[in-house]
């Protein structure tokens, strides 16, 4: 694995009313990283639970 130099997290420009966060503090991203690292690469709920079906409509 190549060690990349540390990059300075950049805030995401945002003109919506959502509170701006630097990308390193992104809640959505942290949630996904946790799933990939700790839950076999996928959110625990599967395509067969209430939340998801595969059909793209």
């Amino acid at each position: 694995m190549t060690i990349q130099p540390r990059k300075v997290p950049q805030p995401i420009p945002n003109n919506s009313s959502c509170i701006e966060l630097p990308i390193s503090q992104s809640a959505a991203l942290a949630r996904l990283v946790d799933e990939v690292r700790n839950r076999d690469g996928c959110d625990a709920p599967t395509a067969y639970n209430r939340t998801y079906h595969r059909h793209n409509r």
Binding site: I12, N14, S16, C18, L21, A27, V36, Y52, N56
Partner: peptide
Amino acid sequence: EIYLADPAPPRLRLFDDMLRLLLGGRSQKE
């Protein structure tokens, strides 16, 4: 950008799938 900047985001299925793949995980929708 708006999704990732949201401190209390719901799920956003398309982006979650694509980002999960970029992070080494799996997608869920066709």
